[in-house]
Design a protein around this nucleic acid. Structure first.
Lengths: 122, 122
DNA sequence: CTGACATTTCAACATATGACGAATTGTTGT
DNA sequence: ACAACAATTCGTCATATGTTGAAATGTCAG
């Protein structure tokens, strides 16, 4: 043992190296990370993702989505998205019309689609 | 009944309106959406998200992360991230050193954090 | 090869999540 | 107020996911 370190798991990388290509995420609080986790959880479903891509082409009401996408649980799925501020909601007569909330949502989905479409990454 | 429609759920919005502010997501195949769903699922966890933010500041090995973040299940969490190509892995002696995979990952996390930090959206 | 350490895998369990049909709320037209 | 339709909520169930400790794999030093 030429170098006696006190712990058993300190012989790794020591000070972490700095990437030169990847900027670091600004120090996020635990609360923020938890919210982000819930956001990703709302996005982590094929059907909900499909609803978002449909809504990115224009607003639609619940029954219209149910008919067009052959989906029986549209209301519950939209509720999940609404709770995370991913979609907006407004009433029009008997119908409730949903739409994408903002650009963040669009960007988020777009980024994810880019990532999975590039097999190797950049 | 002035207008007899054949269906019962066609009286909604008819042709969906076009947003002028939000570009539409390019027609994604079901397979792509499913992959994106798995990607979001891997991101949908506070601890995994935390590991990503830590890795965005530089590479680190498993035991280092376990010690610094007081996390006992680092290996399994990193495996989930690795399976979705969110992190890279390389061996260095006894240690295995992980790092962020690419810019997409950084952008994805950054976008999510922006979204949850703005209460009202754009 | 043997011992010590780093990491991963495995199996069992608790918990969270999604799906479905029935009941409920809200809106319009008469 | 009543009937008809749109959407949400509720209760139950099956399935998926995360957690834990122990066993297994891989690597280095002597």
């Amino acid at each position: 043992m030429s170098e006696t370190r006190e712990g058993t798991d300190e012989g790794c990388a020591g000070e972490p190296h700095q990437h030169n290509k990847i900027r670091r995420v600004e120090r996020a609080t635990d609360g923020t990370l938890e919210k982000a986790g819930r956001l990703f959880k709302a996005l982590a479903d094929f059907e909900r993702l499909k609803l978002l891509t449909v809504l990115s082409q224009g607003e639609a009401c619940v029954s219209e989505l149910a008919t067009r996408e052959q989906m029986s649980t549209v209301s519950q799925r939209l509720k999940v998205l609404y709770n995370e501020n991913l979609v907006t909601r407004r009433r029009d007569g008997k119908h409730i019309i949903y739409g994408l909330a903002d650009h963040h949502v669009y960007k988020l989905v777009e980024n994810a689609l880019s990532h999975v479409q590039e097999p190797d990454g950049s």
